[in-house]
Design a protein around this nucleic acid. Structure first.
Lengths: 353, 353
DNA sequence: TTGTATGCGTTATCAA
DNA sequence: TTGATAACGCATACAA
């Protein structure tokens, strides 16, 4: 009973392969009695049902949507923004009755052909740095692709946020509250593992387009408000974790003069900054204002943040891919919204030193 | 340029299909010049590379691991326990260089053949209620399967927690603190959407094995402590959300006499109970102790809980499936641990009424 | 180093 | 209602 196929069953019953196929895939094309007999024998022989791969080959469809992240999967699933997006994407897949295939990319010197070998009908590519080799592999497959957040490839469908405007909104919020000594903590600019102060040049040459533009939004808001951007302490961290945020917070709060407000490009980082403030006994928002980004972990902590429609973005991406509309190079920019909670307030009148 | 295959390229160059195949899959079997020419023509013709489905059929492997939940995917991704498990599973898939294919199950009257059609080499089945039809569909595929948490199917590999003991540990904790008026809030016993008080009979007939056993652990601890279980108010909710936990909290805290401690079977529910306590102006843990489960959302809130090794469980499941060891009916029970934080304390001396 | 032939397990077409 | 045949696109044993 090594391998039982349609043919095995056909032979056993003295009918043709096609007939057996009908018994499984087109029940209405067969007399009831014969069908029952076929199913019976199939069961008896331990037939596992029509082989999905063969079926897929014949039918020309995989029944699955491929999803690609730049980071390790453990990291991706630890990111509330990504998980939120995921919820939406999964919902779309669910509605269409197709699988959602998460494709790990090789990291370090590990080798892997997942993109080349993935049995999928389309790809969702999220947050890949400029020039990442996986992007070329994806395009080589000549399947529908939707890019999410970054990179934007002209001529291809894209789903994302108006990064500069969203970031500027966050920055303007603290500037309008009256803050003039503002620090910035960002993650996801480069993928070289660097954590520390980032020069203007390093900021501008960020590998990840979305974060690069987000940073540009901060700068623009400062310039429009007539606040000197070059004096803004800018701390970059390598990983989007609370611990990294705390480290950034301590670095920034150690500046002289100490910032009265800190902008971060993720909520997770912002939580870490709050930890640092707490370590130093600083009152938030009395002595320090903190702004997050994406509203993915902000509510309980009372964090002011920029809300993004992560779930809707995921769902839209899925529908684009599954409806075949991904053929057209649509560009879907989802709205964002400043959510003011209790982590921001005007700066103290005479700040402690 | 409808469809370009190996044959198209072979014809164009006047070589055989096999030669072209070699150019892609066995570069060493070919002269460098010919290989380059082939690749060139392939590029020119817009060849997308060897068709993964055909390749998969020929090779007899899919290069993907299938994953099944009982809930909608949006719900699964909102559950921190599931996401934690996922991190581990994804890590294993990543290490093995295979895809992780999430397979939505049909819900409501929706029809879907995802399990039957999934191009995967094995299945991970998580938290399916007893008798769920998807389980039969999975077994019909005759592929390696690992069940996680529930149901346990004798003769098949299983990864889970010692539910009764873990639950008893949680219950014993509050009993040993001196609580005698304890309420219980649980989710995931049935899938009929019911929210409200649950009779003893309804508790015992819970559809989900893990939660049924977890509840049994609570009861056992009470009986061993000589506390009357039948007097324990037991509130059941349909969804694992903070809002549902809050509702349960209000119901339980409305009892007379009011419980001085509440056990919940998820952290998310416990957070909701804390919300309810806050609504009523109850001090935690001064006037009310709360215990969660799984340590998935507990830390910030200072919640006492049972820590489960979700990520390790996911990784172990993946390795079982990917190493081929899933052939043996291994039964991996992962350790749990009571984490005491600041949501539990002895009951008040003379509790308010 | 390259070509030939065959099989992987289905399903669709068309004829009986 | 059922059967024969031809794809689907590829990889491999074997021969040249």
């Amino acid at each position: 009973m090594a391998r039982v196929t349609l043919q095995t069953i056909a032979d056993r019953l003295g009918v043709s392969r096609a007939t057996v196929s009908y018994a499984f895939s087109r029940p209405d094309q067969l007399s009831d009695g014969l069908r029952r007999r076929i199913l019976e024998v199939a069961d008896e022989l331990g037939y596992a049902g029509p082989n999905p791969t063969a079926r897929s080959l014949r039918l020309g469809r995989a029944g699955a949507l491929g999803m690609i992240f730049s980071e390790t999967l453990a990291y991706a699933f630890a990111d509330p923004y990504a998980v939120g997006f995921f919820q939406g994407l999964a919902t779309a897949a669910e509605d269409a009755g197709v699988g959602l295939c998460i494709l790990p990319l090789p990291h370090g010197d590990r080798r892997s052909e997942t993109v080349r070998d993935a049995v999928v009908d389309s790809f969702c590519v999220m947050s890949l740095p400029d020039g990442h080799p996986a992007l070329a592999e994806v395009f080589a497959r000549k399947l529908p692709v939707v890019m999410v957040d970054e990179p934007y490839v002209p001529g291809h469908p894209f789903v994302g946020t108006d990064e500069p405007t969203a970031a500027a909104t966050a920055a303007r919020h603290v500037l309008e509250l009256g803050h003039r000594r503002v620090g910035v903590a960002m993650v996801g600019l480069h993928d070289d593992g660097y954590t520390g102060w980032a020069s203007q040049e390093r900021q501008e040459s960020a590998l990840f387009e979305a974060m690069r533009r987000r940073r540009g939004g901060y700068q623009r808001a400062f310039e429009e408000a007539g606040v000197d951007w070059s004096g803004v302490p800018f701390y970059e961290v390598a990983r989007n974790t609370r611990a990294a945020g705390k480290k950034a917070g301590h670095a920034l709060l150690g500046c002289d003069p100490r910032p009265t407000a800190i902008l971060t490009n993720t909520d997770v980082l912002a939580l870490g900054v709050l930890d640092a403030a707490s370590d130093l006994g600083l009152d938030v928002p009395g002595e320090l204002s903190v702004v997050g980004f994406s509203d993915s972990a902000a509510e309980d902590a009372g964090l002011t943040t920029i809300r993004q429609a992560k779930r809707e973005m995921g769902e839209a991406t899925g529908r684009l891919l599954l409806s075949g509309a991904a053929a057209k190079p649509e560009r879907l920019i989802f709205p964002h919204e400043l959510i003011v909670r209790t982590s921001t307030a005007p700066p103290p009148r005479s700040p402690r030193r």
